[in-house]
Simulated scan of single mutants.
Amino acid sequence: MTYETSEPAPSAGTGGPTWDGHRPRWNKVPEVTAYFWVIKVLCTTVGETAADLLAGKAGLGLTGVSVLMSALLAAVLVAQFRTRSYRAGVYWLAVALISVVGTLISDNLADNMGVPLETSTAVFAVLLAAVFAVWYRRERTLSIHHIDTVGREAFYWLAVLFTFALGTAAGDLVSERQNLGYWLAAVLFALAIAGIAVARFALAMNAVLSFWIAYILTRPLGASIGDYLSQPSADGGLGLGTVVTSVLFLVVILGLVIRLSVTRKDTRLSERADRS
């Protein structure tokens, strides 16, 4: 399922290197296919269960886990920025780690600092909107089909981080404060994503807008699924535990990423003429 289509190339003055009109440019992110959405949801689930696992059973606490995972994310993002084109293994490892870090940012604000979920949700929404505003003002597009300069990639990963933090806070606000339970919350978020898909394909909703809304909603969807599988039955879950759930989803992610690395079904070669 593809939510986003390619947009016209940015005009002159948007930054980035100059390219020959016939020279190919490799996008730094994958094509938006069914694989993309499946792995994205799986990564968000791992982000939820891995954060709980490391903070609880590993005994690191929220602060210790936050420092460790932030350092790992920084190292992987350095590797991602140094790649000359999209590499499935590096890219999805960055997404998985940023899922954990985004979860931890929201959890630290709520649990360690006592920030209400209503406040953190509003703050993350404003920050994400600010990132999009600056990104669009500079590049004249928010399309992920043009993540082919350092500047655009920086905006992209910053936006992804805030979508995870926003999705975590908003998901917790809806599922916990409204006492919906994990399974009902997952159904609710899945229906919301389905509604966005209908609006996109049946009502011609803007492709970029629908993509980013769906991207945000996959975070609480994945978290609700992860909580449902891992939490004890007394709390409304299946009781698989964070270890089993994390390992299970990591194995599936690894299998899909290996397949994509071999088949390159999610690689897009884009070209744009130099307008300067």
Rank of each mutant, 00 (worst) to 15 (best):
T5K: 07
P8S: 12
S11T: 11
A12Q: 13
A12Y: 10
T14C: 14
T14K: 06
G16I: 02
G16N: 04
D20K: 14
G21A: 14
H22R: 07
R23W: 05
Y35A: 12
V38D: 02
L42G: 06
C43V: 01
T44M: 12
T49K: 06
A50N: 01
A51N: 02
A51C: 03
L53R: 03
A55S: 11
K57C: 00
A58E: 03
A58N: 01
G59C: 10
G59Y: 11
G59P: 09
G59Q: 13
S66Y: 13
V67A: 14
L68A: 15
L68Y: 13
S70Q: 04
S70R: 04
L72P: 01
A74V: 08
Q80A: 08
R84D: 07
Y86K: 02
A88W: 01
G89P: 00
Y91N: 03
S99K: 09
T103H: 10
L104C: 08
L104H: 06
D107Y: 06
L109G: 14
A110D: 13
D111Q: 10
N112M: 13
V115R: 08
L117N: 11
T119L: 15
S120C: 05
T121A: 14
F124M: 13
F124I: 05
V126A: 13
V126D: 02
L127V: 12
A129F: 05
A130Q: 02
A130K: 03
A130D: 03
F132C: 12
V134M: 09
W135K: 03
S143P: 08
I144E: 01
H145N: 07
D148G: 09
T149V: 05
T149D: 08
F155D: 02
Y156L: 08
Y156H: 14
W157D: 05
L158V: 08
T163R: 10
T163F: 14
A165F: 09
L166F: 14
T168G: 10
D172M: 00
S175M: 11
S175T: 09
E176N: 09
Q178H: 09
Y182M: 04
W183M: 11
L184V: 09
F189V: 05
F189M: 07
F189Q: 07
A190P: 05
L191W: 07
I193H: 04
G195R: 02
F201C: 05
L203D: 00
A204E: 12
M205K: 00
M205D: 00
N206P: 03
A207M: 07
A207Y: 08
V208G: 13
L209E: 04
S210W: 02
A214I: 03
I216P: 10
T218W: 04
I225K: 08
Y228D: 00
Q231W: 03
A234C: 00
A234N: 02
D235H: 00
G236T: 01
G236W: 01
L238G: 02
L238N: 04
G241L: 13
S246V: 12
L250E: 07
L250D: 09
L254V: 13
L254F: 15
G255M: 12
V257G: 04
I258F: 13
I258H: 06
R259E: 08
L260E: 14
S261Y: 08
R264I: 00
S270F: 12
S270I: 15
A273L: 01
A273E: 05
D274T: 04
